[in-house]
């Protein structure tokens, strides 16, 4: 059983539930390659679209499993950028990865760095990891030139696939509305707790389990117990 297996399953159920609905589509990766990479500062006056304003809803989530994702894909639930009518929209970016994760914390950091390092011309990102929030701005020029969430998905897949332990990637974007983001709050809270527990035991090196805020999730998830035991063993040596 992998660390994020239950989260992964819940997210897959969410995607499966949306399949066939009007707002659901899969964007062909090859149609969206080659958008230039650039670290842009985008001010309000040049912003065509804002995604993930905390008032409207914002979520970024990473989960993995060992079982291979057979085909890399980009799933969009809701309108793509050129179709969004309001200047500001809710936004979720869910990244599902398959591969081998022998050292979960190292793998998590490596995947997280890839997500942090994505730079696309005409798009500006800010991430608040402690609240799983992502805030982005897309400038007018990028939108006029046909920038789509497909470009972001394609860049994420390309960069994640360059990581040696990754065997498959599915990127899910949600722009449909706050209701769908609320539906994701369960797996989001669980992922947050798992990452928090893993980070605490790695960063703090404290094993006083009785007083730990993550006691419940550690007792429930075998992978967390395994990480904790491995770290304890490492400390003894």
């Amino acid at each position: 059983m992998g660390l994020f297996d239950s989260v992964f399953r819940e997210l897959e159920r969410f995607v499966a539930g949306k399949r066939g609905s009007a707002g659901y589509r899969e964007l062909p990766i090859t149609d969206f390659s080659d958008w230039p990479s650039q670290d842009d500062l985008i001010l309000e006056e040049e912003t065509a679209l804002e995604l993930g304003n905390p008032k409207l809803g914002s979520l970024t989530l990473l989960a993995w499993r060992e079982e291979k994702i057979e085909e890399d894909s980009i799933v969009l639930v809701g309108p793509d950028l050129p179709e969004i009518r309001n200047p500001s929209a809710p936004f979720a970016r869910i990244v599902l990865v398959s591969g081998r994760f022998d050292d979960e914390y190292k793998c998590f950091c490596e995947l997280r760095d890839v997500l942090y390092d994505i730079r696309l011309k005409g798009m500006m990102f800010r991430v608040l990891p402690s609240r799983q929030m992502i805030w982005t701005r897309v400038n007018t020029r990028a939108l006029e030139q046909g920038f789509s969430l497909g470009h972001l998905g394609s860049a994420l897949i390309e960069n994640l696939r360059a990581v040696d332990f990754v065997s498959g990637v599915r990127v899910v974007f949600v722009t449909s509305g706050k209701q769908d983001l609320t539906a994701l709050s369960g797996p989001a809270a669980r992922a947050e707790k798992l990452v928090g527990a893993m980070m605490k035991m790695t960063e703090e090196m404290s094993y006083d389990c009785d007083s730990c805020q993550y006691n419940d999730v550690c007792n429930e998830v075998a992978e967390l117990r395994r990480i904790r035991n491995r770290l304890k063993e490492g400390e003894k040596r």
Partner: peptide
Amino acid sequence: KNADQKDLARGIDYMVA
């Protein structure tokens, strides 16, 4: 919450922006 330096730096970058 727990955060390593990298997450903390990202969080501050977000809040400053």
